Computed example of a mutant assay.
Amino acid sequence: MIEISTSPTSTTLVITGDLDLAERDQFPEVAARVVGLRRQLVVIDMCRVTFMDSTGAAFLIALADSARKRGGAAALRGADPRDLFVLEVCGALEMFRLDPDHRCEDARPASDFSAPATT
């Protein structure tokens, strides 16, 4: 499930559950809605994401690319090291601002996966 909220300067997506091939049917509608809101910053809250595959990564990459084309940015908060690794393997991690200070309220159990090095 993807919930969208807005402020005067940002759009926030709160993603719950899997972000994968099985959920891809909702991605075009969500992306169109986010683009239509025309906010400079797209914040993607991944605190409740349980799994992400390359299809989910492609969706996030499309959101970041769209924000960049409008002169804005995309920020990830609460992303698990596994999710960051998927974006890194896709060569897209640098497209996102990472929020290292964010602490998820209902944090999922930490994985044993090591976080990728970021520059």
Score class of each variant (00 low, 15 high):
Gln40Tyr: 01
Gly91Trp: 05
Leu76Ala: 12
Thr6His: 05
Glu29Ala: 15
Thr16Trp: 02
Asp112Gln: 10
Thr11Arg: 06
Ala62Gly: 14
Pro109Trp: 08
Ala75Tyr: 02
Leu60Gly: 02
Ser7Asp: 14
Met1Leu: 12
Val14Lys: 09
Ala117Glu: 15
Met46Gly: 01
Thr11Gly: 00
Asp65Ile: 14
Ala32Asp: 14
Ser111Tyr: 02
Leu21Glu: 05
Arg70Phe: 10
Leu63Gly: 08
Leu84Pro: 02
Pro116Asn: 11
Ser7Met: 09
Glu94Ala: 12
Leu98Thr: 08
Ser5Asn: 10
Arg77Ala: 08
Gly56Ser: 05
Ser111Arg: 09
Pro8Asn: 13
Arg39Pro: 01
Leu19Tyr: 04
Ala79Asn: 11
Arg77Ile: 04
Leu13Glu: 08
Phe59Leu: 02
Ser54Lys: 01
Cys90His: 10
Asp45Thr: 05
Asp20Thr: 04
Pro109Val: 12
Cys47Leu: 02
Val34Cys: 06
Thr118Val: 15
Arg33Val: 08
Ala75Val: 11
Thr118Pro: 02
Phe59Cys: 00
Gly72Met: 04
Val89Gly: 08
Ala67Phe: 11
Phe113Ala: 09
Leu84His: 10
Asp80Gly: 07
Thr119Asn: 07
Pro8Ser: 13
Gly78His: 09
Ala57Gln: 05
Thr55Gly: 00
Val14Glu: 06
Arg70Glu: 15
Gln26Lys: 13
Leu19Ile: 00
Ile15Glu: 01
Leu41Pro: 03
Val86Phe: 07
Cys47Ser: 15
Arg48Trp: 07
Arg97Glu: 15
Gln40Leu: 03
Ala79Leu: 07
Asp101Gln: 14
Pro8Asp: 14
Ser5Gly: 05
Cys47Thr: 12
Arg82Leu: 10
Gly91Asn: 01
Val14Phe: 04
Thr12Tyr: 02
Ala73Arg: 12
Leu60Asp: 03
Ile61His: 08
Asp53Lys: 00
Pro81Asp: 06
Leu37Cys: 01
Ala75Asp: 03
Gly78Ile: 13
Thr9Lys: 06
Val86Pro: 08
Ala117Gly: 11
Val42Asp: 04
Asp106Val: 04
Ala73Thr: 13
Thr50Asn: 09
Asp80Tyr: 01
Phe113Cys: 13
Gly56Ile: 00
